[in-house]
Amino acid sequence: MGTDPLVSVVIPSYNHEKYIESAISSVLNQTYKNLELIVIDDGSKDRSLELIRQFKDPRLQVHAQENAGAHATINRGLEMAQGDFLTVLNSDDLYEPERLEICLKRFADNPDLGLVSSWINVIGSEGNLLGVKQGWENMQPWDLGDPDRSFRKTGSFSLNLLSSNYVATTSNMLWTRAVYQAVGGMRDLRFVHDWDYLLRVASQFPCEQVEQPLMRYRIHDSNTIHSNYDWMMFEICWVITANLNRFFGSQLFNKEELSAEITDLDMLYESINFQGNEKLVWLIQNYLTHLTQQGHPSPEEELIHNKTLREFFISKVKKPVEEQAPSRPPVLHRLHSHLKKVKQRMF
């Protein structure tokens, strides 16, 4: 790579006329200038495409398509990308001005890195700051039994991903072309395609987190995660079941002493929370084993592509107990609870 490698930014745009101009501007106004911006409008029904086409910058490419979904739109953009580094920005999020410059310095300092993320400024629908998510250190989506015995004590980027998607969003990932060539694109998931991608990358490549908020992640009522609790919980159970064994023998259970193996087992036990859906996890795991033994070429994808199978597993998601259950999905409930405390301290 040259001293100023090309960065490809992909924005999948869908019905975010309120936010899309800010998203695009946050890319074009980066302090790092050698970039291409690929915006693909995924069949928006509002004025998004009209607003996108008002921008006049030679680094910007605009494409329109019939609605295909987030993961397919992202993958199309990644296939078009020419950059040495690849990244995605959701059309309701924003980059801080120095994001690319600071993240690229991490890669320059450590050429072995495959992916970099950062802390996050969490904002409301109108752009007001709600709090700063500091990776795995705060705003946990669910309780861990004993954090001092969990993966949190390791300070490991990859192992902490097994507890939750603390990176939080597709917008918070910058990775190399070598990673893309090895891992490929996003898989066809509605809620956790970013988490799945992170686990696939982190199991193979060194990754780092910049301890500085370099993007703004927007919380609003139309976030995808609001839409279907059961489907979301199925995908959470699926993503851990489908990816956990990628870490065996390399980052987990890679030591000869039995005591070290027991320590890894204990950390794993304290780090995983399936919200009462352990039976569903057991079912997914055993059916994946069955498909593998039958010689199925892609057993993991079968569970998410086969509508009949997917709906069966979704139907087995355990509903949260009413008096304990938040009105939001647990991932957002914990986040909003923390942000409420943040705002109370602010005022």
Rank of each mutant, 00 (worst) to 15 (best):
F274Q: 05
E211G: 02
F248R: 13
I262Y: 10
R218I: 02
V281K: 05
A242C: 12
A260W: 00
E278C: 11
L265R: 12
I219L: 15
F253M: 14
R218P: 01
Q275F: 12
H220L: 03
F234L: 08
T224D: 03
V210N: 08
C237E: 00
D264S: 10
N286L: 09
I272N: 03
L252Y: 00
Q294F: 02
Y229W: 12
D266I: 15
L268H: 04
D230R: 14
N243P: 05
T224M: 13
H296F: 06
L288Q: 07
I225G: 05
F274H: 13
S222Q: 14
R218D: 00
N273F: 07
L252H: 01
T241P: 00
Q293Y: 10
F247V: 13
T224V: 15
L258V: 13
H220W: 13
I219K: 10
L291Q: 06
H220N: 13
S250K: 14
A242G: 10
N228M: 04
P297K: 09
S298K: 13
D230S: 15
E261N: 15
R216E: 11
N277R: 03
E256C: 05
Q212D: 07
R246E: 06
D266Q: 14
F248Y: 12
T241K: 06
V239E: 01
T292Y: 03
V239H: 00
L265A: 14
P299I: 07
N223A: 08
P299L: 03
Y269V: 15
T289P: 02
N254W: 09
C237F: 00
W231D: 10
Y287W: 12
S250N: 12
N277D: 01
Q293R: 15
E211C: 10
Y229S: 04
V239M: 08
G295S: 10
T263V: 14
F274E: 02
W282Q: 14
W282Y: 09
R218E: 01
T224Q: 07
V210Y: 01
I240W: 03
Q293I: 07
H220R: 09
I240P: 00
E256F: 11
Q209S: 11
L265V: 12
L214T: 09
F247E: 02
D266L: 15
T241L: 01
L268A: 09
L280C: 00
P206K: 09
D264F: 03
F248N: 11
P206L: 07
S298G: 05
I225Y: 06
K279N: 15
L214I: 10
I225Q: 04
M233R: 08
G276M: 07
E300Y: 09
N228L: 04
W238G: 01
Q212W: 03
V210H: 03
W238K: 05
Y287Q: 11
I236P: 00
Y287C: 08
N273Y: 08
M232H: 04
P213Y: 00
V210A: 10
K255H: 13
I272R: 06
N273W: 05
E256Y: 08
I262T: 11
T292Q: 13
S259G: 03
S259P: 00
M233C: 07
D230L: 07
D266G: 09
E211D: 09
E211S: 12
L291Y: 04
I284H: 02
L288R: 02
W282G: 03
P213Q: 06
Q275N: 12
L291E: 07
V281D: 03
